[in-house]
């Protein structure tokens, strides 16, 4: 500590602080992670405690394809962020669009699974504990995908109008952090719901 305070350097030169957007995003992600962990704990706690059917083993099958879509969208957004750093806006736009499409496919996957569960298997949020915890957890994740997609689409629109430039790379990075988080959460949800929970 002594060394720092006695020899104070000219501030303009070396006073560097973390970027506020990034810090805030990490803080937000911590908060979201806490919310998810409560839902995950509830899910795990209630496995096998439903008093009536249908039970997970009877109606759930792991959505591998959609999972791959969502996970690979983490890669595509990473590439997109890289392109904008090197000022390659067109290529950025392409990767970005691909990310949106992959996210949308995943959402479609969730929607069709819910449709099947509701109309064919008769499982709704009121049916039993499994229904309650399943729709809440998967729904909470789906909600985050939707929010993420809204954010991504906004950026896409700006890109199409040509307002997104290299100087926005930092913000794009922050947004992609959120998207990575949404993907990472899915790995947890997937494991809990489709692997442990069956």
């Amino acid at each position: 500590m002594n060394a720092i305070s006695t020899t104070l350097r000219p501030a303009e030169l070396e006073w560097e602080l973390p970027e506020r957007g990034r810090v805030a995003m990490f803080a937000l992600i911590a908060a979201e992670a806490a919310i998810f962990s409560i839902f995950v704990v509830a899910y795990l706690f209630y496995i096998g405690k439903s008093l009536s059917g249908p039970l997970p083993a009877e109606v759930l099958s792991p959505p591998f394809l959609y999972t791959i879509c969502l996970l690979s969208s983490s890669l595509t957004i990473h590439f997109a962020a890289k392109r904008i750093r090197s000022a390659n806006v067109r290529s950025f736009g392409a990767w970005w669009l691909l990310t949106i499409i992959l996210g949308a496919i995943f959402l479609y996957g969730t929607a069709s699974e819910w449709h099947r569960l509701i109309y064919e298997d008769g499982l709704t949020i009121t049916t039993n504990l499994f229904g309650t915890t399943y729709y809440s957890l998967v729904g909470l994740h789906g909600f985050h995908v939707i929010v993420g997609l809204l954010g991504l689409t906004t950026v896409m629109v700006f890109t199409l109008f040509g307002t997104v430039k290299q100087e926005h790379a930092e913000r794009i990075d922050v947004l992609s952090l959120y998207w990575h988080f949404v993907d990472a959460v899915w790995i947890v949800v997937f494991t809990v719901v489709y692997i442990i929970g069956r």
Binding site: A27, A30, A31, E32, A34, I35, F36, S37, I38, F39, A42, I125, T132, S136, L140
Partner: peptide, 17 residues
């Protein structure tokens, strides 16, 4: 951040109920 979020989650569950 780490403690109000669980409360928020629990309240969401209560609303769902």
């Amino acid at each position: 951040i780490l403690c109000v979020s669980p409360l928020t989650a629990a309240q969401m569950m209560l609303v769902i109920d």
